[in-house]
Computed example of a mutant assay.
Amino acid sequence: MVYQKTDKGGDMSSDTHAGSNVSLARRAWAIRRHALRMAEVQGQGYIGQALGVADVLATSYFHALTYDPKDPHWEGRDRFYLSIGHYAIALYAALIEAGILPENEIGTYGMDGSRMPMSGMAAYTPGMEITGGSLGHGLGIAVGAAFGLKRKKSAAFVYNMMSDGELGEGSTWEAVMAASSHQLDNLICIVDFNDQQADGPTTAALAKGDEAPKWAAFGWHAQEVDGNDLDALVQAFDTARDLPDPRPRVIVCKTQMCKGVPFLEEREITHFVRIEPSEWSRAIAHLDEQMPA
């Protein structure tokens, strides 16, 4: 199945794997559920981030990206680079829902020999384009890939998902300047702004929350949206992809940690959300009660 944009801006696919007409809300719900099931295997994981970014990933994989789940290395694919290696559980959930990874491997998450290690590594996982780890490197890699694709006259886009914490890395802003200088209009950066990093709120560090004007000042087309509003995300992704200007594009997505599981949303949120053993099944049961059409 190849998801691609039609001339009219809609989506189509070459077959109906998992149902091409499944709503984005249902896709986001499934991504959350896959992530919870994986985290339950280990009794831990960056589940707060996975729940929060599920809507962004659903929009990416089931509205915006061109790819073939049967051939993850297809040359004509859009590239999706996960700069945030510890968000791997979220991307695995999206890759499972997209049919790139099999659902029956959920129980292997984080195990020896698994294709789904706890931090994303490209050598292990189909559909994982880069190895994430030290933050602040993903956008630089994406800039190089976007530049190379333009030199090859490819129509493919490069999507780079990064965290708000990476906005405090100097390498990020070097990449921002390079992308603008080279007019990389095939590059779309997605910033997950959940206001959490390892040592506290992001807005208490270097990124104060007014990020779009900064990117615009460097020559990017910048948008800021509610990252848990699917309609707003679809509009933002379409605007970014269809923009006629020769500029790189960024979408700053304000997301809520633990989105979709109210009893987790309501507790004090930190970078690493700790879940009690009995709470995994409770969270999954809540999702099952709220399954969208």
Rank of each mutant, 00 (worst) to 15 (best):
G200V: 05
R115D: 03
E103F: 00
R115G: 08
L167E: 10
A155Q: 12
C253G: 03
D11E: 08
V56Y: 11
M162H: 01
P72I: 08
C189L: 08
G170P: 11
A293N: 14
E268C: 05
I89Q: 10
A283I: 08
T108I: 05
S154E: 13
E174S: 11
G52T: 12
M177T: 13
L36E: 04
S278E: 15
G140F: 10
R241I: 05
G165R: 06
G107Q: 15
L57E: 11
R249Y: 09
T125V: 01
S14N: 14
T125L: 04
D15I: 10
E129S: 05
G170L: 06
K70L: 07
R26L: 13
Y92C: 03
P102H: 02
R282K: 15
N186G: 07
D245T: 11
R151Y: 02
P201I: 01
F62N: 06
G132I: 10
G168H: 00
V261M: 08
Y61E: 04
T66V: 04
V273M: 14
T66W: 03
T255W: 01
L243Q: 09
Q49V: 06
G113E: 12
I89L: 15
A155M: 01
K8A: 14
S14A: 09
V143Q: 09
L167V: 02
G132L: 13
D210Y: 07
L287I: 07
P246I: 02
G136Q: 09
G99K: 02
I284A: 04
Y159H: 10
Q196D: 00
A145Q: 09
R249S: 08
T6N: 13
F263Q: 06
D231M: 04
M128E: 08
V41C: 09
K208N: 08
G85E: 14
Q235M: 10
A155G: 08
Q183W: 03
E103V: 12
H34R: 10
G227Y: 06
I100T: 15
D15E: 15
D210E: 12
G168E: 14
L65G: 00
R151C: 05
K259V: 01
P292R: 09
D288F: 07
Q183H: 14
G144A: 12
R151G: 01
G48M: 05
A54D: 13
A142K: 08
R27A: 09
G45N: 02
G133I: 08
A232E: 15
R267Y: 01
T203K: 10
A283D: 02
G132M: 07
S23N: 09
A285G: 11
M116K: 09
C253N: 13
G52R: 07
E103Y: 03
L287T: 10
T203S: 13
R247Q: 15
S281N: 12
L24T: 10
